[in-house]
Design a protein around this nucleic acid. Structure first.
Lengths: 221, 221
DNA sequence: ACCTGAACACCGTTCAAGT
DNA sequence: ACCTGAACACCGTTCAAGT
């Protein structure tokens, strides 16, 4: 598609800007301020652009306006950058789940559907990021950090189930097992949706919603 | 790990064997009989070996004992070979689901757990293949063939749900939605298990089983 | 008809060298 | 301290040439 495309922006020998301590979003501090952040942001943008994108370290460097070796001063290797992106993804997911129930819905049922819906919406809105988060492309000891961060993102889910069980709205089951069931369900729905295998055309209504409600039947008391 | 490893088997200029019409498993027809099948089998073996394996066309050719350009006479590109592997995966999955209920369990409940358990067991036993089947690495129009084949593999699931609803054991719900719920659940459990995120240590008992039974609660009448 | 070898445009990663 | 340029060992893919 893009063979031999020209350098998109020459190294611009502009005046060195003092490293801003405030996180100015519109800044381009590139190869003099903090390249590390520029790399992460460029990579995030690439992840956001296209779900079928082949993620390349050299392409990140190109778009950040630095040489292809520069990133190695900030990340030991490609996997380390991917790990950072994945971790940020889990943090973002956690925030969105929290936001989905900040004006807390009155019924446990509505709360359940709000959290589940927000989870699926996040994955479908950020397919490349979501797949990265679960792809294992970020190395294997990554699991240590990742699963920790993933579990923390799921804190909202655990709290919700705890409340539901306490109020008597949900069946009293071992919390971890019930949480695993819910996580697996929304993860499965999200993944199949991203891959285009849960097509609303082939199915009556929206299968994602149906699947969520079928699980809800198993959770409600 | 393996830099510059020597050719593992020289082209052996043995007597040309007549192309066997019967599928002799122990044969090595390699670069004179049907290379196509040799490539597929070599690739399958590589997929079976290691879940973290980086699948390389050149490596397949190396292990099949042919030049790295030879596969292009049988597959237009790498994606085409991966597609073939994925399709075979879905066929195998379909067979295993069928086998799981060939002496049909007496209760709908047992049948449900047998099918679900077989699905998860297949994925966990063939992690690289399972991930390939859902990874989108096999191109995109692939979805046309793939989803067709995937749905056909899920025929066993649909039949089971139909029987369960007919007998009154399962809730009467739109079949496609209920099937989507079940598929998403087993897919989610399988994926999370493969990635090592459903660790039995962290959870009381086996979370996969718990998750399956929680869904079952939502399916049972 | 089927396969090889050299070639091209890429990668990830390393390292001496520049500022 | 941070970045560049050349270099190495790989890829996927193409193509003329061999048998």
């Amino acid at each position: 598609m893009s063979p031999g495309k020209p350098r998109m922006s020459p190294p611009l020998p502009s005046s060195r800007k003092t490293p801003t301590t405030t996180l100015d979003a519109g800044d381009r501090p590139y190869h003099h301020g903090d390249l590390r952040r520029a790399i992460v942001e460029t990579a995030s943008a690439m992840l956001r652009e296209d779900k079928g994108w082949k993620f390349t370290l050299r392409e990140v460097a190109r778009r950040a306006g630095v040489s292809h070796a520069a990133p190695y001063k900030h990340f030991p290797d490609k996997a380390a950058l991917l790990l950072e992106l994945a971790l940020r993804g889990f943090d973002q997911l956690g925030q969105e789940l929290q936001a989905a129930i900040t004006p807390r819905p009155r019924s446990a049922r509505k709360e359940f559907l709000a959290v589940g819906g927000a989870y699926i919406a996040f994955g479908v809105a950020n397919p490349a990021l979501y797949r990265l988060m679960f792809s294992g492309d970020a190395g294997d000891p990554r699991v240590a950090h990742l699963s920790e961060r993933a579990l923390s993102a799921l804190g909202v889910l655990l709290d919700m189930l705890t409340r539901g069980q306490a109020s008597g709205a949900f069946r009293r089951r071992p919390l971890q097992g019930q949480a695993a069931a819910c996580w697996a369900q929304v993860h499965g729905i999200t993944m199949l949706s991203i891959e285009g295998l849960l097509m609303p055309e082939k199915v009556g209504t929206t299968p994602a919603q149906d699947a969520l409600e079928t699980l809800l039947d198993g959770v409600l008391a």
